[in-house]
Simulated scan of single mutants.
Amino acid sequence: MKLTIQLFAGIAERLNTSQLEFEYDGDTLTAAMLKEQLSQAYPEAATQIRSSFLAVNQRYAPADTLLKTDDELALIPPVSGGDGSTNQDEDHPYTQEHRTEDGLFLITNAPLSVEATTDMVITANHGAALTFVGTTREMTGEQRTVHLEYEAYVPMALSHMAAIGKEIAERWPGVLCAISHRIGKVDVAEISVVIAVSSPHRSDCYDASRYAIERLKQTVPIWKKEIWEDGSEWKGHQLGPWNPMDEKK
């Protein structure tokens, strides 16, 4: 069985590649078995591999998931999505923009527009709208951040952003949600994420907005690398043990 595994963030950096070709001699291979095989084959990245989840066909896979040779596989290290319509300009001559079909969810390497994201959820029958804007913070304690670099598993990230919108609509009927996220270099005080929600009444806006950013950090495969004056580090999930398959209560 010959498999291709996509790598991201710290694992890709440690192994100096964004893709692994891996051959397995047995007939049956589960997600847990593959992670252990990779950990043994690449001991320099074993800790990161074991703390990651395997995505199969852009979905987080339980440990007992059986793998096939034609599966789209990716190792997803702990995510860190978002701390806190875009036009091409002279600073971003090669804009990469990816949207869901309904236009509500966007990943781009160009600067984000708060107004454009908010406009996606404004409707005549909603009396409240709330927009959360996450920006790059310069100082964390005594440490100075020079800029951030974001990376995403784009197709899976978009599908999970859309899933957040569906979850919100189920929990708060009638609430609309749009999310725009930046990838690539994001300088200090620049916007990395915009989350806009609207509803008939303001209380649902507050609850849905908080829910959206927490789910973004939990499930969406977007990673953040902090660049400092004297080094750098990939920042993953920092809200306790990470399990993207946990249901949000």
Rank of each mutant, 00 (worst) to 15 (best):
A12C: 07
I122S: 12
S52N: 05
S199W: 06
T28F: 15
L15K: 11
S159N: 08
A196F: 03
V220D: 06
S52V: 01
P78S: 01
I183C: 11
W223H: 04
Q48I: 00
E90T: 05
S232A: 03
Q6L: 15
Q48N: 13
T135L: 14
A45G: 04
Q143H: 12
A116T: 01
V56R: 15
V121C: 11
I195N: 09
P244M: 01
T117M: 05
D71E: 09
S52P: 00
R202S: 13
I213C: 09
E226I: 04
N57M: 00
W172F: 11
P111A: 04
I227C: 01
E72C: 13
V186W: 00
E72W: 10
S198V: 00
T117W: 02
A46L: 00
E90D: 04
I107A: 14
G134I: 08
R182M: 07
K248D: 09
P155R: 11
K248R: 15
K2C: 06
P78M: 04
E214C: 05
E151Q: 12
Q238S: 13
E101C: 03
T4S: 14
R50C: 04
G240H: 09
S199I: 01
S39G: 15
G81K: 11
L54A: 04
E101L: 15
K249S: 12
Y150F: 10
E90P: 08
I11D: 13
Y24S: 01
M1H: 02
Y42S: 05
Q19T: 11
G141M: 03
P241G: 07
A31H: 05
Q96F: 07
D89P: 01
P155C: 02
T28S: 12
I5G: 13
S159A: 09
K249A: 15
A63G: 05
D230A: 04
F53H: 11
S199C: 08
K235D: 10
K235S: 08
S85G: 00
A163E: 08
E115H: 08
L29G: 02
P244N: 04
E138P: 06
A169V: 03
M120R: 12
Q58R: 09
P77H: 01
A74E: 09
T86G: 10
F53R: 12
Y211M: 11
S232I: 04
I49K: 02
I11E: 10
S113R: 06
S51P: 10
C177W: 07
L38A: 03
E90R: 12
D27H: 15
A157N: 06
I107M: 13
H98F: 13
S180W: 03
L54W: 03
L38C: 00
E21L: 13
F132H: 13
V194D: 12
V193N: 09
S192E: 07
E190H: 09
A12W: 02
V194N: 11
H237E: 01
K225H: 07
P77I: 10
A74N: 06
A41N: 11
E101R: 12
H237P: 04
R137E: 03
I191D: 12
Q96W: 02
G165M: 07
L20R: 01
I227D: 06
V133E: 08
S198C: 11
E36P: 14
P77C: 04
A46P: 08
A61I: 00
H126M: 02
Y206R: 12
E97N: 14
H160Q: 15
L73V: 05
Q40R: 14
S18G: 14
E226Y: 05
V175D: 06
